[in-house]
């Protein structure tokens, strides 16, 4: 089984984000691997270890994606492709999916694993649109993957009224939730080996496409403005005798907030 797993480099959500004139201030930002993609990488590596799958990773971005890719090598990914093209400016999910479609078609993959969403946009579209473009079956929000035979996997996904068990005929696309696994911390030996591994860098021409062809030149939607989110104000905090402060808070809930 050949697996293609996608990883995006995103802004670290744990740090503060400042906005000026409708844009995010780059200064002081840090970038990390998208957490859900890291779950995808872990899932791919587990399939390698348990089911002899071959693992290829693809990332779309710039040279500074290489640190993240090396981390994935250290986790156990075998091959990596970096799509780096200066013509790509702020691609939307459709453009990402268009590029991934070309990457998919160049390989002979049985399964594509993406994170269920990226932490910078929180959109959750790319993997699903990719499947539409490729006319492949797709299951999103997956929390387990089990290989049935060479042509079938059984997955479970979190649905609206419970855990849905779905049997999928390969090739297919799945998007994974963080509930699927706990990504491993790479061992020292893996980290050392990852340093020496090659990363295949391609631009869109090498992929046999162009920014126009993937819809990157005319996005279907674009961010016109970033704004600060309305942060809630910290309210009243009570410390001291539990009986006394709890009674006080209940009184406020009833008479000030009027929730009871």
């Amino acid at each position: 089984m050949k697996i293609l797993t996608t990883v995006k480099r995103v802004v670290d959500v744990e740090l503060n984000i400042h906005i000026e004139n409708g844009a995010i201030v780059e200064d002081g930002l840090q970038y990390v691997i998208n957490a859900w993609d890291e779950n995808g990488v872990e899932a791919a590596v587990q399939l390698k270890e348990n089911n002899n799958a071959q693992t290829t990773l693809v990332s779309i971005g710039e040279q500074d994606n290489t640190d993240m890719i090396r981390k994935c090598y250290a986790m156990g990914i075998e091959d990596a492709i970096l799509i780096d093209d200066p013509a790509l400016v702020a691609p939307d999910a459709f453009a990402y999916a268009g590029i991934l479609q070309k990457v998919y078609e160049k390989g002979d993959y049985d399964l594509v694993i993406t994170g269920k969403q990226a932490q910078d946009t929180d959109s959750g579209q790319t993997g699903i649109i990719l499947a539409e473009y490729l006319q492949l079956p797709c299951v999103s929000n997956v929390i387990s993957i089990e290989v049935m035979d060479e042509a079938h996997i059984r997955v479970s996904r979190l649905g609206d009224s419970g855990t849905e068990i779905v049997e999928i005929t390969l090739p297919a696309v799945v998007t994974v939730s963080d509930s699927i696994n706990e990504p491993r911390l790479p061992a020292m030996r893996g980290i050392m080996m990852a340093k020496k591994k090659k990363i295949q860098v391609m631009d869109l021409a090498a992929l046999g496409t162009s920014v126009e062809a993937v819809g990157g030149a005319a996005p279907k939607s674009e961010v016109a403005e970033f704004m600060k989110s309305k942060t809630r104000q910290a309210g009243q905090k009570f410390e001291g005798d539990a009986a006394q402060i709890t009674a006080q808070v209940v009184e406020l809930l009833a008479n000030e907030a009027k929730v009871f």
Partner: peptide, 14 residues
């Protein structure tokens, strides 16, 4: 909202 609710985006649909 985006980035785990840290920012709000105004999106123009084309």
């Amino acid at each position: 909202p985006a980035i785990a609710g840290k920012v709000i985006q105004r999106i123009q649909v084309n």
